[in-house]
Design a protein around this nucleic acid. Structure first.
Length: 661
DNA sequence: GAGCACTGC
């Protein structure tokens, strides 16, 4: 075993684990907790009745840590020591110590809720509070009380508030293991700068002039750039986002400049919108950033904020992801576990999401038929939960299977899973700037971005997955290969849950495209019933239905085309609402007027009080479902096929009810 | 007519 600080605490750790079902281990960076705890427990026979699982929030960590442990154990990776991440399971019957991402462990617990294959579960890096880790914490709390076979749970983290986790687990013991960091001197500036980018550069130059050698790591909110090794006798300036807090270790850093800010994605359950905001970091993050200066020798951290701001203004810990995300997928997952005496609104989270966020999730699940009007999971919902997708997309796949366009839907859904990597790669040379983005790529036939994604993938398929074709068309190769992997995985799961023979083959022939696209759009419409927007009568602004009224625009990058009069479709479904300079719908798909009525009717009779199993406060049952249509517009709006009396009737009933309030 | 931090099944 390696000579790490944690090794000196072996007896104490084993003794504590022996006596307690749950133990919290606080270990600073360099303590060796990620590699040593599993080996200690293995040595003491804890893997006799099951494997020792160690979860990681990131794939690379699961792979690299397991590789090190295999080396230390002197075994081949994949045998006694292995790992499991999405698309890759390197374990065997021999495996005693298994590293896996927290997402993989959640998937496993869907099929084996007691997780009987494991005798020990170590949740590593719990301080990061990833959405998946938070769900696992809640599940572990239930499991240690209910599982028939013996289970030991260890929760390890760098700077987690041990007391809080201990209270959560009925005052379990907390062990603290020192790390192997060098001391870091903290310097606060006396006043917050107006421009922190400028201030950080000034500070960097200052360090360069006055301080001895050593690289400088600067934490800003954008512009990731970690340079390659410098020529000798040169000092590196590394500008980074929070990626260098965890995922990335840069050797040679002695000085850290911390702007005190981070860009964070936030979900607003009342509007259904995501926004990316620059917010103040937490104390935990500030400590993490400072620690990056002490990895190779004593270092210095310059904080571009007064120490009073740090003490009085900064939150102790970062707002956990579970309080910043849409929870439809999470709630569906928990519902599908069929936990005994489980009320979803009262699930025991370390930090509970808001009632509003949970109710928003229930509302969305109801609209995509995953739960019924009483909040019970449907058989459809159970199948949806088996797919590693957000509910809109899993619903689309199941509907597509019914409508006989599964193959196309699989492609679209997989392309959406790699959304960001798919966007045209940043243009390499500035000379090409004048040229428009290559127009060789298909345009979705004017029907929207989903159809375009389908067409792009089908073209790639026709080149036999040619990598050069991707490059020529400004598509990110890694993204496209990822899409192919996702598509394969989803096909396999569909085979399993839908039974029978399915057509999942990517299409080469050109049938009647318009008809084919129409059926696909219908499937997308059913899947995105929770993400339907209605166009304003006079202009091309839309209002998302079922959320607090806000005017949104189709994102300029969309390929959706207006008609001869310059008007966009009366209704669209969208993949995402994102607020940047203004609220935008990203990835939109044209839908037909005649499809819309049943969804409007469903929106109308939405009753969150019932959906939540009647457990929310009576005051909260008055749900503000706004159909977002102004009265004067209702009188005039007509569908292209003529008046759709059902839509009209649904609207009128809704407005009448609203008028009564 | 925009411009986006980081993960994961």
């Amino acid at each position: 075993m390696a000579d790490l600080p944690i090794v000196r605490f072996e007896e104490k750790i084993i003794e504590t684990v022996e006596k307690n079902p749950v133990v919290v281990v606080i270990g600073e960076t360099g303590s060796g907790k990620s590699t040593q705890l599993s080996q200690m427990l293995y040595k003491r026979g804890y893997a006799k009745s099951g494997m020792i699982a160690v979860t990681q929030p990131r794939r690379v960590a699961a792979v690299s840590v397991s590789r090190r442990v295999a080396q230390e154990q002197n075994v081949r990776l994949g045998e006694e020591v292995g790992y499991a991440i999405r698309f890759e399971d390197r374990t065997s019957e021999k495996t005693h110590i298994k590293y896996l991402t927290d997402g993989v462990l959640l998937r496993e617990s869907l099929f084996n809720p007691e997780l009987n294959q494991y005798s020990v579960i170590i949740l590593d890096e719990a301080h990061e509070r990833s959405l998946n880790t938070d769900i696992l914490l809640g599940l572990m709390k239930r499991l240690i009380k209910r599982r028939h076979s013996n289970l030991k749970v260890l929760i390890t983290s760098a700077t987690l508030d041990g007391g809080k986790v201990s209270r959560f687990f009925s005052d379990c013991p907390v062990l603290t293991v020192p790390g192997e960091l060098f001391p870091v001197e903290i310097v606060h500036i006396s006043e917050r700068p107006k421009n922190y980018v400028e201030a950080s550069l000034k500070t960097a130059i200052d360090i360069h002039v006055r301080e001895p050698e050593g690289d400088i790591l600067i934490f800003l909110t954008g512009q990731v750039r970690v340079f390659s090794p410098p020529p000798p006798h040169c000092r590196r300036f590394i500008v980074s986002t929070n990626i260098a807090e965890t995922s990335l270790t840069v050797d040679g850093v002695v000085y850290v400049i911390d702007s005190g800010y981070v860009k964070q994605r936030q979900y607003n359950p009342s509007t259904g919108m995501y926004s990316l905001e620059v917010v103040q970091i937490s104390k935990v993050q500030a400590k993490q950033r400072a620690g990056r200066a002490g990895r190779t020798r004593p270092g210095k951290c310059y904080r571009l904020y007064p120490s009073m701001v740090y003490h009085d203004d900064f939150l102790d810990a970062t707002v956990p992801e579970i309080q910043r995300s849409s929870l439809a997928e999470t709630v569906l997952y928990l519902k599908s576990l069929d936990l005994a005496d489980m009320d979803i609104l009262k699930f025991d989270f370390l930090d509970s999401p808001s009632m509003e966020s949970l109710e928003d999730a229930l509302k969305q699940l109801y609209l995509v038929d995953a739960i019924d009007e009483n909040g019970s999971i449907t058989s459809l919902g159970r199948k949806m939960a088996e797919l590693p997708l957000e509910p809109s997309l899993s619903r689309t796949l199941l509907e597509a299977n019914e409508l006989d366009c599964l193959s196309q839907a699989l492609t679209v859904v997989s392309m959406l899973s790699a959304e960001t990597t798919l966007l045209p790669a940043p243009s390499k040379s500035s000379e090409k700037k004048r040229k428009h983005t290559p127009s060789n790529l298909p345009d979705g036939s004017g029907l929207g971005d989903h159809i375009q994604l389908l067409q792009i993938y089908e073209q790639w398929y026709q080149t036999d997955y040619n990598v050069d074709w991707c490059k020529e068309n400004n598509l990110q190769v890694r993204g496209m290969l990822f899409v192919r992997d996702v598509r394969k995985q989803l096909s396999q799961i569909m085979h399993k849950i839908a039974k029978g023979s399915l057509d999942v083959q990517t299409s080469k022939r050109r049938r009647d495209s318009q008809q084919e696209y129409r059926i696909l759009r219908k499937a997308l419409f059913i899947g995105y019933a929770n993400q339907l927007a209605e166009r304003s009568i006079r202009h091309n602004g839309y209002r998302p239905l079922g959320f607090k009224s806000e005017l949104v625009q189709v994102h300029p990058s969309s390929v959706l085309k207006p008609d001869e009069d310059g008007m966009l479709p009366n209704y669209v479904v969208y993949h995402e609402l994102i607020v940047t300079s203004r609220p935008f719908m990203r990835n939109v798909c044209a839908v037909e007027m005649r499809w819309v009525a049943p969804v409007l009717a469903k929106l109308e009779k939405l009753n969150v009080f019932k959906l939540s199993g009647g457990s929310s406060q009576p005051d909260e049952q008055i749900q503000e479902v706004t159909l977002n249509v102004e009265k004067k517009e209702i009188a005039t709006i007509q569908s292209p096929e003529g008046r759709d009396s059902r839509i009209q009737a649904a609207r009128e009933r809704f407005l009448a009810r609203k008028g009564q309030k």
